[in-house]
């Protein structure tokens, strides 16, 4: 749910990184945090287990600065990917303006990707968000590994509707900013069209 504040002249949007466990959602956010100008980012909050697995969420606020007198902020969230944290995932989707699905491109993870996509659809509906219209970008991560599916296969299996998609190696930063740029623009477009 975007918040446009005419009094403090701010626009705030929420983008959620979704996907199966160990797919690279947190890695995406951590790379953004590391690379971006420190004046444009806030504190990175990670609610993780001792083993560094996301327990509740990661949160990173990004500040685009003043554009025509308005401060625009993107709040990036990740969900915990592990199956048993479904209740937490549902909560984090609350009020999302856009979703990035971080798929693990390894062949043996195909089933988990499909399950997680279906879980996303169910959870969006539970938050009164329309899976058909919410701004959505697909990222195929870990493309450097040996056992990955080809991008054609991935598109066919995970993205039959042809949403914008990017190949990534998040741990090296490849594809991370392309994905973020794409989802940010889609979210702003949706807000500007009053959707």
């Amino acid at each position: 749910m975007s918040l446009i504040n005419y009094a403090s002249r701010e626009i705030n949007c929420k983008i959620v990184y979704y996907g199966p466990g160990l797919g690279g959602k947190t890695t995406n956010i951590k790379y953004v945090y590391k690379q971006i100008d420190p004046s444009a980012r806030g504190k990175l909050v990670s609610l993780a287990t001792e083993a560094d697995r996301t327990l509740f969420f990661d949160f990173l606020p990004l500040d685009l600065g003043q554009v025509q007198g308005f401060k625009t902020r993107f709040h990036l969230y990740t969900v915990p990917g592990q199956v048993h944290y479904d209740a937490s995932r549902r909560l984090i989707l609350k009020g999302a303006d856009g979703v990035v699905f971080v798929a693990d491109a390894q062949r043996e993870r195909l089933e988990q990707n499909i399950e997680s996509l279906e879980n996303l659809r169910v959870n969006l509906i539970s938050q009164n968000l329309d899976p058909e219209t919410i701004p959505f970008v697909m990222q195929y991560n870990k493309m450097d590994l040996a056992n990955v599916m080809s991008s054609e296969e991935l598109e066919q299996q995970l993205n039959p509707k042809g949403y914008l998609s990017f190949e990534a190696i998040a741990v090296e930063g490849i594809g991370v900013f392309d994905t973020l740029k794409a989802i940010s623009k889609l979210v702003l477009k949706a807000i500007s069209e009053g959707r």
Binding site: V32, I36, D37, A40, L62, L64, G65, V67, Q68, F70, T72, F177, L180, K181, S184, K185, L188, K189, S192
Partner: peptide, 14 residues
């Protein structure tokens, strides 16, 4: 014009 300005900002920051 606002959307365009923000998009330019996104390109330069991200």
């Amino acid at each position: 014009s606002f959307t365009q300005a923000i998009e330019n900002e996104i390109d330069s920051l991200f």
